[in-house]
Design a protein around this nucleic acid. Structure first.
Lengths: 380, 380
DNA sequence: CCCAGTTCTGAGAGCGCTCCCACATTCGGC
DNA sequence: GCCGAATGTGGGAGCGCTCTCAGAACTGGG
């Protein structure tokens, strides 16, 4: 028994009392036996049979068809039959088996939000929380269940695609695509209605919803150039994501339009640490820099931390502009000048677009771009 | 068409060019039409028929049984048949329909992680990111898909239970239970293998895995009492969660054991803001306080912010002790003294326990409590 | 009282897959 | 050459549900 040596209790719900400190680390649960256990062997489910529609019908003294009609609230059912079935349902504690229903109707009433990113990383970025809020808002009142899927560590990336294409969900929202991810192509060819959040890099024929990253970055460049800063650098996002590419392109374009050149570019991974590291590199290469545009708020915060550590003040020595306008931007010290993108609306719009797809509405816009705008605060 | 007035583009994947700023907010996508649209009307799926096992078998010139054997990698298949089926599968782009397979096998090869909390709130708390990491670690190599489910705004809480009990998943991990949530009971009676993360308040006969909150809080009390602080207060968690109750009980017990009494208790909701508000209240009631134990790191950070705002220094004027030992604790200024709970291991252990349940292993511990320990840093 | 129209009901054929069972082959050993 | 075992294959009955269709049971107007 693997749990030997670990403090265990069976008195569920009992009020805890002072006990000797729990100790004894014991073997890690992720031991070899657990790892080698294959999925195929799994599944000796509780054998307590769950009641089926047939049993309900028999108990109610009607046919399966009539029972089904009652359960799905259809008309053309006599009051007597309806009462009998309702009674039988509660007596038996019947719950319709969704799998069987879905198999027959070809609908699951659930959608997936896929984050093409390792799970643990996702939850650290406030972007996803906001996006999720938007998606939920878009889903309100539809009766659809949203399931979240993320890359798992011990599992190849293709498992996600297999899951989605196997009929588990009616539609898919894909966010945070990297490089040439095969996922959109798979979904496309499997005929799973899909909307991408964020422009894909690969040319896949799927609708997407994105913020206008390009023009947001143009605005940032224009702002810093107009502020009379001399040596401007940028902390760009990953090279393998459209959002990184677009913001860098916009920045370059805005700089060019203002007749300026970019002194230096460093790439970060949208995290605070990445931003700080990039800033440190930029400071080493361009000690005279006095303005920086970071492609995300988190990276801007990291940059500010690195600047502070290097003895520079913000905004006096160096102006900092971020991107996102997350909650952290306004509460930062000093408050962060940033480019606002409507993240909730991104989620809501993508959801709404996907629902349209499911309803086979025509006249749907192929893709949608939502406006971004510069929010000037104290940092630059 | 609802999207009228919004900037749309069809040139998927094209490099963006400078465009006039996107504007025109347009009507919110979550308009009435979208809300009233019922789930039942949904689902005109792409009509491109997906190939079935029958078609694969026919193309390969074998029976459905043989085709199935090949696809599931069983033995007793001739090399010739195997090759023919493999060929047919790729030619047709066949993907097994999981719904049908699950219906027949009564297994779905997926587990749910249910967060009994509104989605948007979840992602703000680093606890969940760590827990998720642990769950993924526990799942590595099993081939099981994890789906995340959270409370949705426009949907009654029961929808979650219905989803889980309807055969969508083989097992469920439930975290962040509040009060007398009916969910565990539903899962129990539906026979869905379930492990709770965190002690439930209701007396439901389900195994749980939890940190030793009680003794952790005892240690915090002992620590503050031994530090020679005179007036000690605590910021407790929600009254409707076991984790809140247990930490408060532990604190009280530890204080009593040290022959001290608690000057004041304020409840927070585990967020930074809640912690700050609670601290402000406590300061008003007990201006002479010089030590505070917050039931979470986030609340401790909020408390530190409120203390700073009130002109108190940490730890000179007031000692602060948190709970969790999240990443934020070590990087806080000053670094936070806190009670470490092994969150990743909590996730790993719960997962491992659930896998054991699925494999119908006997000798499984009913419930497990993992040790906590005080980590002394500068804040108190 | 008959017949068209409406309301109600049940039989039965799927949905796409698995898996048991029976039947065909092949193989090796005496 | 014969027989049991090992190996390969197809038929068919489910899994639990939906949904069409045909027919039964009521209406009520002429």
């Amino acid at each position: 028994m693997r749990a030997s040596g670990r403090d265990t209790r069976g008195d569920h719900g009992a009020r805890p009392a002072v006990r000797p400190a729990t100790g004894v680390a014991g073997g890690s649960p992720a031991d070899t036996a657990a790892v080698e256990r294959e999925a195929t062997k799994r599944g000796a489910r509780t054998d307590r049979r769950v009641p089926t529609l047939d049993e309900v019908a028999r108990l109610a003294g009607v046919s399966r068809s009539t029972a089904s009609r009652v359960i799905n609230g259809q008309s053309y059912v006599s009051a007597r039959a309806r009462a009998a079935v309702t009674e039988a349902v509660t007596r038996l504690g019947y719950r319709p088996n969704m799998l069987a229903r879905s198999l027959a109707t070809r609908r699951t009433n659930s959608l997936a939000l896929v984050v093409s990113e390792h799970g643990s990383r996702v939850l650290d970025d406030p972007f996803f929380a906001r996006l999720l809020r938007g998606v939920y808002a878009g889903l309100a009142g539809t009766g659809l269940q949203l399931v979240l899927l993320m890359d798992q560590d011990g599992q190849d990336h293709a498992a996600l695609g297999r899951y989605l294409c196997a009929g588990h969900v009616d539609g898919t929202l894909v966010v945070s695509l990297h490089g040439e991810d095969p996922l959109p192509g798979q979904l496309r060819s499997a005929g799973v209605p899909t909307v991408l959040v964020g422009r894909p890099l690969s040319t896949v024929d799927l609708p997407y919803v994105d913020a206008d990253n390009f023009n947001g970055a143009v605005a940032a460049a224009r702002h810093l150039a107009a502020a009379g800063r001399g040596t401007l650098v940028t902390i760009a996002g990953p090279r393998d994501m459209a959002v990184g590419i677009d913001r860098l392109a916009g920045w370059r374009c805005g700089m060019a339009a203002a007749g300026r050149r970019t002194a230096g570019v460093a790439h970060g991974d949208f995290t605070v640490e990445g931003g700080a590291a990039a800033m440190t590199r930029l400071l080493a290469d361009h000690p005279d820099l006095d303005g920086v545009f970071a492609a995300s708020d988190l990276m801007a915060l990291g940059a500010m931390r690195a600047l502070r550590a290097a003895g520079r003040t913000v905004p006096d020595d160096v102006a900092v502009v971020g991107f996102d306008d997350s909650d952290l931007a306004a509460t930062a010290v000093p408050p962060l000048t940033t480019v606002r993108q409507p993240v909730e609306e991104l989620g809501r719009t993508a959801t709404w677009r996907l629902l349209g797809e499911l309803d086979a509405e025509d006249q749907l816009p192929p893709s949608v771009l939502l406006p971004t705008e510069l929010v000037a605060r104290a940092s630059g």
